[in-house]
Design a protein around this nucleic acid. Structure first.
Length: 607
RNA sequence: GCGCCCGUAGCUCAGUCGGAUAGAGCGGCUGAUUCCUAAUCAGCAGGUCGCAGGUUCAAAUCCUGCCGGGCGCACCA
């Protein structure tokens, strides 16, 4: 799974120094309040989508407008129905009273399965109970509930750790967000290519090699590879100030590496890379992340000359203070993009440009997303604009997906100073706590360690994904390790409860044909929560925002818990009712499994 | 100094290209378990949406200024 060094790493590592932070500006194509379904094939119409489309079409006809300009809203309060259309704007354009207009529209509209009512200037739509139950149940019992058949090619670059450094809490965000986005696009029918651009190149490796030559210890390396390499890195930075010889040794070592010749430095570098990748792989397995392409920055080594030459042929290359740069002032960016230093070495941007060009030639992508901390916004703006200046017609398919910094109440962490919070430690502590709780709440469980792993990881992953991507997040053990309230374990618990009920029914879940869905009319809130899942996934994809899926699942979880607390499913005296409720429970179970699966939160059947 | 991001309840956060009484979790207080897992549910208390102007029928949301916090600003990645 992990390619050998030389054909390995790609840049993200360089992408993640210490924890990360702020966002960038290039905004994405935003979805409307309720994403339009007009352009979607029937296969994507699920849940409430079909009603939204019907309403929009009827409204468009009544108003004599194109269907795609009719934007429905989601009312804040249940009593206002499932969809709403405020009449202010249109009424103003047409010089009529909005409330009167709402009333006229309500009186004139006749939509199958949907009631329209005017409340002041608002036109509210409420789906008829039987139609709602039938449509939502049928859709949510389907294996393709929420799936799409988009067909676009989307590359997602994420995680991208640095060789010889432990994955820390900052890597959690890029890994978890990137993996979730990749799964979502796959679910929506994109052709997805997951890329891990590992930081295996650059002058820092000269430092590491120099430090190894001085203080390296083979036994220590074998015992704890990353730990030892980190120690060397820290020691280098502690001593380089007082020891100019050390710096020279580092430069010499990197030159040897860069020469491309086989040499002791290169052999060592390859060994460090292999050890690091092995370490990363264990984390990826725990987080359920995987990659189609693991390419280190070094993979592009032999493309760098050609890249610089290409820039020159495009006529954008300039010399400035001995370095080669691309001026971007015409694009509104004051800082030029540096592609070759005065000493002739290439840089981060050079490697990214080469990588992007290589990916374009290989995949002809529709989108190439970079899930990288917001502090690198300027870098991505520059890099896109260089491609624009070169006259590429695909520069705007490159998109930085920034995310906020992980912050600590106790102050900043620093890799150089050796103060890091290892991702492994975070996961271990979460699992350990989960183990204690399982021990206490379900001492009979057949495989406590396995559930503890699932619940602990689920808590950490969900905690990250329930926040808006680009906001900084405060790392607080109490919150990350919380298993109650709006948390991953809460949803896992809900899923396990559903599984438990289905298990105890002692038979396969009823199929839609066997159910009188009208018996579920009293569970409107649950049906609506289920029915909104497909739109949530679609909008999350459009906005590159996994949080929207997390929020939709929390709403579903809350209504599901209320549902089975208030209503006995099994053992009543009405077999038809039991059947219908069992089907609803199955729909919740399927949807939670599907949604949590997209986020990378495991779904144990018992906990 | 310049640029970008953020500022909603005690805490952590939602709030749909501006729209109807600003929502949820945690914490606090009341209650609920003869019954499918109480990692749960029902309810109460708690908010000048950083401040000041502006645009609009309508502003937490858009514009301007200010305050506070963060990140970035070529030979690192």
């Amino acid at each position: 799974m992990v390619p050998p060094p030389g054909s390995t790493a790609t840049p993200n590592s360089a992408r993640s120094t210490p924890p990360t932070s702020a966002p960038r500006s290039a905004s994405r194509s935003a979805a409307c309040s309720y994403p339009s379904t007009a352009a979607l094939p029937d296969s994507m119409l699920h849940g409430l989508d079909a009603f939204a489309e019907r309403i929009a079409a009827a409204l468009a006809a009544a108003l004599d407008l194109p269907a795609d300009v009719v934007r429905l809203e989601r009312p804040r309060h249940d009593e206002h129905g499932e969809f709403a259309y405020p009449c202010f704007r249109i009424a103003k354009e047409r010089g009529v009273n909005p409330a009167q207009m709402a009333q006229d529209l309500a009186a004139g509209l006749d939509i199958d399965g949907v009631g329209a009512a005017a409340v002041g200037p608002f036109l509210n739509f409420t789906i008829a109970g039987t139609d709602l139950a039938a449509a939502v149940l049928a859709a949510s019992l389907s294996d393709s509930f929420g799936r799409g058949s988009d067909g676009r090619t989307t590359l997602v670059e994420y995680s991208s750790p640095n060789i010889a450094k432990p994955m820390h809490i900052g890597h959690l965000r890029t890994t978890v967000i990137g993996a979730a986005l990749a799964r979502m696009y796959d679910f929506l029918g994109h052709r997805v290519v997951r890329i891990n651009h590992i930081g295996d190149w650059g002058s820092q490796f000269g430092k590491l090699l120099a430090a190894w030559a001085r203080w390296g210890d083979d036994d220590a390396l074998k015992a704890d590879p990353i730990g030892h390499l980190l120690k060397l890195y820290v020691q280098f930075h502690a001593e380089e100030e007082q020891d100019t010889g050390l710096k020279d040794e580092a430069k010499a070592a990197f030159r040897a590496l860069e020469s491309g010749q086989e040499c002791p430095e290169r052999a060592l570098w390859r060994r460090f890379t292999e050890l690091s990748l092995g370490d990363f792989e264990t984390i990826y397995q725990r987080l359920g992340a995987h990659f189609d392409l693991v390419r280190g920055e070094s993979w592009y080594e032999d493309q760098l000359e050609g890249l610089v030459q290409w820039l020159d042929e495009c006529g954008v290359l300039e010399e400035s203070d001995g370095a080669q740069v691309v001026d971007l002032s015409s694009e509104g960016i004051k800082t030029p993009c540096l592609v070759r230093t005065g000493h002739g070495t290439t840089l981060y941007a050079t490697r990214d440009l080469a990588a992007a060009r290589s990916r374009w030639q290989e995949f002809a992508f529709d989108h190439c997303l970079y899930v990288v901390g917001a502090e690198q916004t300027l870098h991505f703006q520059q890099f896109r604009m260089v491609l624009k200046r070169c006259g590429s017609d695909w520069w705007d398919r490159i998109e930085h997906i920034p995310f906020g910094l992980v912050r600590f109440a106790e102050g900043k962490l620093s890799t150089r100073a050796g103060r890091v919070l290892r991702l492994q430690e975070v996961l271990d502590r979460a699992v350990e706590l989960a183990r204690e709780i399982v021990e206490e709440k379900n001492p009979e469980h057949a495989d406590k360690q396995r559930v503890a792993e699932q619940v602990g990881i689920g808590a950490v992953v969900f905690h990250d994904l329930k926040h808006q991507r680009q906001k900084d997040v405060l790392f607080d053990w109490k919150e990350v390790l919380s298993f109650e309230g709006d948390t991953g374990p809460y949803l896992q618990y809900t899923h396990a409860r559903c599984c438990s009920i289905l298990r105890k029914s002692g038979r396969p879940a009823p199929s839609f044909d066997e159910v009188d869905s009208a018996l579920l009319q009293d569970s409107r809130e649950l049906l609506v929560a289920l029915g909104r899942f497909p739109a949530a996934v679609r909008e999350a994809g459009d906005k590159r925002e996994p949080m929207l899926v997390a929020q939709a699942l929390l709403r579903l979880g809350a209504s599901a818990n209320a549902f089975y607390r208030e209503r006995r499913v099994l053992g009543g005296d009405d077999p038809a009712l039991e059947n219908a409720r069992l089907a609803a429970i199955d729909a919740v179970r399927r949807t939670l499994a599907s949604g949590l699966g997209l986020l990378g939160v495991p779904t144990p059947e018992e906990m």
